[in-house]
Design a protein around this nucleic acid. Sequence first.
DNA 1: CCTGCCGCCTGCGCGC
DNA 2: TGCGCGCAGGCGGCAG
Length: 284
Amino acid sequence: MPELPEVEVVRRGLDTHVVGRTVVAVTVHDVRSLKRHLPGAADFVPRLVGRRVDAARRRGKYLWLVLDGHEALLCHLGMSGQMLISDADAPLPRHLRIVLDLDDGRQLRFVDQRIFGGMMLADVDEEQVPVTIGHIARDPLDPRFDRDLFAARLRRRRTGVKRALLDQTLISGVGNIYADESLWRVPLHYARATENLRAKEVDALLGHVVDVMGEALEQGGTSFDALYVNVNGQSGYFDRSLAAYGQEGEPCPRCGTPIRRDAFMNRSSFTCPRCQPRPRNGRF
DNA sequence: CCTGCCGCCTGCGCGC
DNA sequence: TGCGCGCAGGCGGCAG
């Protein structure tokens, strides 16, 4: 979180407000947001100043601005990152980490409470994808996402289905919210062994992943608090449509059984104990 | 190669 | 009142 739909909402905002602009100044307020830019701020700032933004792109939860020349400003929002477009004289928000001044007098502000996110400059390949994220799989909204390849790789895994869904090298963009929602829709328990999944179940799961993310995108993404916002600081509405995630004790919309919360993978998993019974031969 | 665990981060709400 | 703790959890690194 933010997951693919929330990141796509941000990408669209950048497409509208930042593409075509030139960076005229850069201020790094907190170097921890450049953790993955190994040469540090002394390299980051001068390399970014004067560059024109040619495109705003995304794969899974990664976001990047294609710069003139074979380079990109790669961004990850982590848990709490925001990209905000502001007038330069607007009050500075708490947790402001990096500011890009643009040639129209406005600013692109990277705000990140928990600093799990960050920015870095990266070379791009012939498809304009940063080489740094070459290990990240295509996401299910990518026209070149290969469903058969995903199904084959999934069933070669020896793990539980939710663990696999959250593995960004297998399928990208899915986080805890949309994993739980997709599994509820199939329905499948998170601990179902990937090697035992039937082809129909994999098909259904993938279909629900695409559907639930598409619906969330139409509603501007999911927001539980003020952290997940578009470039204008506005939240989406999809949290009102969640069937399982965060619904502990609430009735399952399908059968009425109270939704259950389990600790799993150092986070929470929400299931309907009746629709998604724990598999007898499943594994974690 | 594969799988799964750890540490990174901050703010908030809770119990004592 | 204030402190400590659990929780939110994506991802790179690394152990086995």
